[in-house]
Design a protein around this nucleic acid. Structure first.
Lengths: 252, 252
DNA sequence: CGCTATCTTGAGTAGCGTCAAGTCATGTGG
DNA sequence: CCACATGACTTGACGCTACTCAAGATAGCG
């Protein structure tokens, strides 16, 4: 799938390209949402770097000091939390428009590893500058708060998933969530490529890769999805939602 | 302390004393951390209500519009996320100094239920006023960001727990976390009362109440803790940490 | 073209859930 | 003060879901 939604070759977009938020197609999904044209140039001047990452490259590692937040322009990333004994868990998958690095504000150091799952491009947003500017632009301040709050709510949803759903429900929830995020970004809700491995999905959902594979096969058998390696088509979204909705206990 | 000159029994007083942040023993744990004396009175004037809750009473319910954030002065609360089918899960336990309601900023509505586990007292912080004041007081702004970020990091920890730990590890992690939070607040790290039921602990940890009961019994058998109903003593914190640390797979 | 990472599928198993019975603590009304 | 009701907790027996281990298939990449 071609993520390059952004018109290439704008005046500022050469060499080490500064691409303005004001001309970014993601601006309504991202940090500048709600900023009016007059103030936008101040945001533009804050977000003055882009950075490319190759597949597998780290955006930051746990322990690194907080310098900037990052907004994804293109590509998909994962964040992993680590346990001393070496266990790691995927805490989230990120795509265009998502804001990364919020975990580092509390302690001044990143608390997870964030890695590109495919070639990515991110906008770098110096955090101290962001705090300063958000004091002057209430809509920017509010949007930052909203983004952090929504991350908290998303995390609650993951807890619910991990704490009280069975494997099929977890995977149904995951696929529907992915589907919705693609739709929000203007892509097909019913057909997309998984950018992550079965193992990464499993890690995120608290399951083993074999279980992911089996459940995907079962869904396909049942005609709910068609899956061929990384390519996935949701044939019957209604049924997926039904899988999610059915409580395991009591009658029905 | 009455920087507001609110006469006792005035409408604003609502029969509850206004207790200023500046004289609150929790201020270094709570929202005003890092505010200097000169600015503190502005924070005091923002936080102008206290509210008492009886055990079992809701502080807010999912769906309610965001009006205020709440700081716990005394008592313990739980937050529960709900699934349409009626399943619910405890997303967190809160105690003195914790700031509640952050889930509501993103959508303007609360996304979970928050309930008192015992009689509680909270300080009400009108959110719009908080955003406004935090534009004028950078340390307040930064502290709000830190609190939200720490909530995100805490959530990552819960995901790790739910996604990759066995029952014994989860409970060990839970007890050590409680212990540390009591210690931070000046209480004993090794001896305290559980304010929540086995079922609530289980819900938080993604386990059933019978499992909580069994694992507590096993810990007691092993001499790691002593537990008698709600009363708990950690006899061997080192061993608890060891239970947490041991990876289940491979050698070691 | 072969190497490696990824994925699929099967068989056996362990850990936690379910169901059930019984104990204990707390509170209430007589 | 006691009898009783209620909610919380403990413990046992059994079952099911997802894990483990293992073998083989497939795709991507140099």
């Amino acid at each position: 799938m071609e993520n390059h939604h952004v018109p290439p070759g704008s005046p500022l977009d050469r060499g080490h390209p500064h691409v303005a938020c004001s001309s970014c197609s993601l601006r309504e999904l991202c940090l500048p949402a709600g900023i009016d044209a007059r103030d936008m140039e101040r945001v533009d001047s804050l977000v003055n770097h882009r950075r490319k990452l190759r597949r597998g490259e780290h955006l930051y590692r746990a322990g690194a000091p907080l310098v900037s937040l990052y907004a994804i322009r293109s590509g998909t990333m994962k964040s992993c939390v680590l346990h001393e004994d070496g266990r790691e868990q995927v805490a989230g998958f990120h795509m265009m428009g998502d804001l990364l690095g919020l975990d580092a504000i509390g302690g001044g150091r990143h608390m997870c590893d964030t890695v590109a799952l495919e070639d990515c491009e991110v906008c770098e947003i110096p955090f101290s500058g962001l705090e300063q500017l958000s004091r002057e632009l209430p809509p920017l301040q509010h949007q930052l708060h909203r983004i952090m709050s929504r991350e908290i709510v998303r995390d609650y949803g993951v807890m619910l998933l991990l704490g009280s759903m069975k494997a099929e429900e977890r995977l149904a929830a995951f696929l529907l969530n992915l589907s919705q995020r693609f739709a929000t970004r203007g892509y097909s809700a019913s057909e997309f490529n998984l950018r992550m491995t079965r193992e990464e999905i499993g890690s995120y959902l608290g399951l083993k890769l074999e279980t992911i594979s089996r459940v995907l096969s079962r869904f396909q058998q049942d005609g709910v999805i068609e899956v061929h390696h990384k390519h996935l088509r949701i044939s019957d979204a209604e049924r997926l939602r039904a899988i999610l909705g059915q409580a395991p206990t009591s009658d029905g």
